[in-house]
Design a protein around this nucleic acid. Sequence first.
DNA 1: CTTGCCTCTGACGTTAGCGTCAGGTTTTAG
DNA 2: CTAAAACCTGACGCTAACGTCAGAGGCAAG
Lengths: 125, 125
Amino acid sequence: MTVGQAADERLLRIGEVARGAGVSVRAVRYYEQQGLLIAERSPSGQRLYRQDTVTLVRFFQQMFAAGLTSRRIAELLPCWDTGHTDAEQRAMLRAERDRIQAKVDDLQAALDRLDEVIAITDTHP
Amino acid sequence: MTVGQAADERLLRIGEVARGAGVSVRAVRYYEQQGLLIAERSPSGQRLYRQDTVTLVRFFQQMFAAGLTSRRIAELLPCWDTGHTDAEQRAMLRAERDRIQAKVDDLQAALDRLDEVIAITDTHP
DNA sequence: CTTGCCTCTGACGTTAGCGTCAGGTTTTAG
DNA sequence: CTAAAACCTGACGCTAACGTCAGAGGCAAG
């Protein structure tokens, strides 16, 4: 039975990962440099990634958008790789969550102020 | 009647504005350089601000936190100075509001993912 | 074989909102 | 009067996530 073996998944080249995740090739190399990704190498030295790397890169993008640094993401990677965390990691998780929540509140307040101005300037040509 | 004349408001020096708004003196100078603030000058060249400048600076902070650039804020300043806007400004206001709303949604999604991980790692020592 | 696209490793460039240092004047407290 | 505190104008530094360019190798198609 050679069919259905997940281990036979075709590995992806960097360009495929980049296009799949909607980022640049440069970004993918950068993630590796920051310790977020580890790639196999072909005999000629080209990077080869597993297919789930695309999902992982998308996840990085989401965390970046939330204001986490690549360093922080790297420190927290074990959390969803292994599902296990130590006290320090749990503290970081909560700190990030609180920070993001605070940011959401700030943005919401800014949004309200802008809507205020929009309402005024719309009725007041 | 010299009492109660708003025009007699004591003008503030840059340090007072900075402390009042919770920013650095450097930041206030930077805002002026970006066209966000205009200061009178004392005979010796020191900047003098009206008291409502403190409120204005706090407003700048809020907009910065929402991701607006100083350039954009400068372009939109007439909106809440005069209450009047042209079509271009109204478009910018809506664009910024939509961008912030999208960012709020992104942050909320990231928040949900983090809470997910937190829930798992809390029940799964 | 060669054309064209993909990939590689450096390494410098960019942006925004300030921080910070230097070197000098001004205002204020005592 | 004097010393500290505050202010002034440059001007370079900083950070993070890449962009971009240079120069060179790799790989499938025709």
